[in-house]
Computed example of a mutant assay.
Amino acid sequence: MKPGRFRSIVTAGLQFRSRQALLASLLARDTPPNTAAIAVLKEMGSIGDRNDILHSVVGGSKAGVWFNRRKTGPNKFTSKIEKYDASRLMMLVLKCSTLASDLMAALDVSADDYKRFFQESHNAVNSDVAP
Rank of each mutant, 00 (worst) to 15 (best):
M1V: 13
K2F: 08
P3K: 10
G4F: 07
R5S: 10
F6D: 00
F6S: 06
F6C: 06
R7A: 12
S8N: 13
T11E: 10
T11C: 09
T11F: 14
A12C: 10
L14H: 07
L14W: 11
Q15T: 10
Q15I: 10
F16D: 05
R17D: 06
R19E: 10
Q20D: 04
A21E: 07
L23I: 09
A24Y: 03
A24D: 03
S25R: 14
L26M: 09
L27M: 07
R29L: 14
R29D: 09
T31E: 10
P32K: 03
P33H: 04
N34W: 00
T35W: 02
T35K: 14
A36C: 08
A36S: 10
A37P: 00
A37S: 02
I38K: 00
L41N: 00
K42P: 02
E43D: 08
M44G: 03
M44N: 01
S46W: 01
I47H: 06
D49P: 01
D49A: 14
R50Y: 03
I53S: 00
L54N: 02
H55T: 07
V57S: 05
V57K: 09
V58F: 13
G60D: 00
G60I: 01
G60T: 00
K62F: 10
A63N: 01
A63G: 01
A63F: 01
G64E: 04
G64H: 04
G64D: 04
V65P: 00
N68F: 08
R70K: 11
T72R: 09
G73Y: 05
G73M: 05
P74I: 06
N75K: 09
N75H: 01
K76L: 12
T78F: 09
T78L: 05
S79T: 01
K80I: 08
E82R: 15
Y84K: 13
Y84D: 02
D85G: 10
S87W: 11
L89W: 03
L89F: 06
L89D: 01
M91I: 13
M91E: 11
L92Q: 02
V93P: 11
V93S: 15
L94N: 15
L94A: 15
L94I: 15
K95C: 10
K95G: 01
C96V: 15
C96E: 11
S97N: 14
S97R: 15
T98N: 12
T98A: 11
L99C: 07
A100C: 12
A100P: 04
S101K: 14
S101Y: 13
M104V: 04
A105D: 06
A105G: 07
A105V: 03
L107F: 04
D108L: 07
D108Q: 13
A111T: 11
D112E: 15
Y114K: 02
R116A: 15
F117T: 02
F118G: 03
Q119T: 13
E120K: 11
E120P: 06
E120C: 12
S121Y: 08
H122D: 05
H122P: 00
H122L: 08
H122Y: 06
A124K: 08
V125N: 05
N126W: 04
N126D: 03
N126C: 03
N126R: 08
N126I: 03
S127V: 07
S127Q: 11
S127C: 09
D128Y: 12
A130D: 10
A130G: 11
A130Q: 12
